[in-house]
């Protein structure tokens, strides 16, 4: 009936099998989660240099000293979190809106060059980012002269091809008849988009929002390249600076790492369904 035999008549067999499986899975989960666990418990240690620390994998001391050590490192440490929030928030809003709009056009509207344009967009996903990084840097810094601004952090990520792809995939399952009858009723395309498509696409919009926010919050490379003063840096870049300036301070480094990771954990646990859905939406063939 399924991949696993059903052990008909022997419930004990099934229970034993599942217990073994769960134990194995738990062991692997332990290995997977250990770095995160270690990061969090170590962040509550004293802010002393590593020579004086003995690592323990058990929670021992509980003090927030290392957190204040991290925040005291730079007067802009709170600003990093604010910057990350502003950039990730802005990029999320623009991606949700423009990717949904473009996804709708590519999946439901007929216009000349639609197929070719979409293929050209998709081709970009094959290009490694190393190819675009240098010219993009020159464009932002030498041509637009917007280095070290929010524009530099936000503009290149305004809307990504991947998100357009996700939106298009999702919308191709919306029946076209709905739009046709709306047209007969006299709706303009703008009305169709706002009143019909957007309400029907809440799931994919949530997926795009979450994946984009996470990606942007966690991204290190681009903000590292285009910011050069502490007040414009994001939390990831700030954390990297802290690490190189305080190479021996173990607990404060873990406190910083925890600060940069915890907002995503909270987001993940509260919106788990959409995270997990987002993983498979892009992978199904279509």
């Amino acid at each position: 009936m399924s991949l696993y035999n059903n052990h008909t008549g022997s419930r004990a067999g099934k229970t034993a099998r599942n217990t073994v499986i769960v134990v194995l899975l738990l062991l692997f989960a332990l290995a997977t989660l250990f770095p995160i666990y270690f990061m969090v418990i170590s962040s509550f240690g004293d802010p002393v240099e590593a020579g004086a620390v003995s690592y323990s994998i058990w929670p021992g001391k509980f003090t927030l000293e290392s957190y204040s050590f991290f925040f005291n490192y730079s007067e802009y440490s709170y600003r990093w979190i604010l910057n990350s929030t502003i950039v990730a928030g802005a990029v999320t809003i623009t991606n949700v809106f423009f990717a949904t709009l473009a996804g709708y056009a590519f999946s439901k509207l007929r216009f000349r060059g639609r197929g070719v344009l979409f293929s050209i967009l998709l081709a970009a996903m094959m290009i490694p980012y190393q190819v675009t990084q240098v010219p993009l840097y020159i464009l932002i810094v030498n041509t637009f002269h917007i280095e070290n601004t929010y524009s530099a952090l936000i503009l290149p990520g305004l809307v990504t091809v991947y998100n357009i792809f996700l939106a298009k995939q999702f919308m191709s399952s919306i029946p076209t008849e709905i739009m046709e009858s709306a047209k007969v009723e006299g709706c303009s395309q703008l009305q169709i988009f706002f009143r019909i498509i957007m309400p029907l696409s809440k799931t994919v919009m949530a997926v795009i929002a979450i994946l984009t926010f996470m990606e942007s919050w966690n991204t290190f490379f681009w903000p590292f390249l285009v910011t050069n003063t502490m007040d414009m840096q994001t939390i990831q870049v700030g954390l990297k600076n802290f690490r190189f300036a305080n190479t021996t301070y173990f607990s404060p480094m873990m406190a910083g790492a925890t600060i940069s990771a915890v907002p995503m954990f909270i987001l993940f646990f509260s919106l788990q369904k959409y995270f997990l859905e987002g993983v498979t939406v892009g992978a199904v063939k279509g």
């Binding site: 997977t32 770095p35 690592y55 966690n218 290190f220 990831q236 480094m253 873990m254 790492a257 995503m264």
Partner: peptide, 29 residues
Amino acid sequence: AVYYLPVVASGVALSLVWLWIFDPMPGGI
């Protein structure tokens, strides 16, 4: 959810943790 959690954590944060896990001293994890 458990297996997905490390994907959610920032790469910079994880790299810092692993840096210490690989501490060359005998006390390193």
